[in-house]
Every structure is written in C-alpha cells, then in structure tokens.
Amino acid sequence: MTTSWNRQNYQNEDLEQHPAVKALRKDHDDAIVEIGSFRGEVTVVVTPDRCVDVLTLLRDDPDLAFDFLSDLTAVHWADRKDAPFDIVYHLYSIGNKMRFRIKTRVEEGFEVNTAYGVWKTADWLEREVYDMFGIRFAGHPDQRRILNPDGFEGHPLRKEFPLGGQVKW
C-alpha cells in the first residue's frame, strides 16, 4: 500500500502527529476550527465554507485515501445559539483501514456545498439530513424529502419537534 502511512501516528496521543491532521494543517490550516479526540476517534471541526475542499483533499491525498464515505448525518444542539447544527462526516479508508470524522457547524439557513461530487453516497444521506433537519445543501442534484412524505410539515429530528402528536399520515 502507501509508504508514509504509519498506524502508530494515527493512534498517537499528540493529535498533531495524525497524518490527516498534518495534511489539513498544511493545506487548509485556516479552515480548522478545533481538533479533538474521544475513545481513540479523532474529530476535526472545519468551517462550513471550506468543508467540501477539506473532504476532497482527504479523499485525493494518496497517503490518506479516505475513499469511502461511511456516514453523513447531523446533530441539532438546541441550546447553541450561534450555529445550532453539526454536520458530521464519517470517512473510512479501505486501503489504510482507518476512520476519521469531519464536523462542521452551521447556522439556520446556511447551505453547505454538497459532497455529492466527492462521493455519490452523499446523495441520499444529504436528502435524509434535509428531511430530518431542514438543512439544505448547495448544488445537490435532487433535494427532496426521502423518508417522510412530500407534504410533511416540519423536520422531525430537530429538538423542538414533538415526540407525540395527533397528525395522521
């Protein structure tokens, strides 16, 4: 496989030694908001406008080769006033057998660029995020609801959406 790849670096306690973090520091240093890790899973928070650039770099860098988009989802932090939504990308590198998490924080109404051009997987996953959270993706080829019916009102996974109700579908 690749040459400079080293499993030790991925598990180093000093996160700056992580190959993906190094690569991001080199090319997209100003896009990085925060770096953290929990239970051995490294998370990098980036600014929403540069998000897709970061993802493209992670996929195309021959040493990192995060070629598989494992999951794309969102989290609604109702108490966070400035940017209540986290969009979370879980990447996987089939060659290096490594996972990596990219997050970006967006405010209500902000449209992140679609990741469809990077991985086609993002098509339905972004539709689901739109359906459940009401976050739109700029440039998405087919931004419709996916699990809920077309005339459905509201976005169920937002914290203010009630758990029970009388509306019948």
Partner: peptide, 29 residues
C-alpha cells in the same frame, strides 16, 4: 461521541451515539 461499526450480513451497520452525559442518548444515528 462514538461511531462504532460491525460487519452485519447486509454490510456495514454503524451506530453514532452522541452523549451529553445524561441517561438518554442525545442523538442516536
């Protein structure tokens, strides 16, 4: 927050759990 996957018969099944320290998952994907 953790993301954990296994090889299910149909492919990769993953659970992404965000915990705010409470007894219920804050977000379960």
């Amino acid at each position: 927050e953790v993301y954990s996957t296994i090889e299910a018969p149909k492919g990769e099944i993953g659970f992404y759990i965000v915990s705010d320290g409470g007894p219920k998952p804050y977000r379960l994907r």
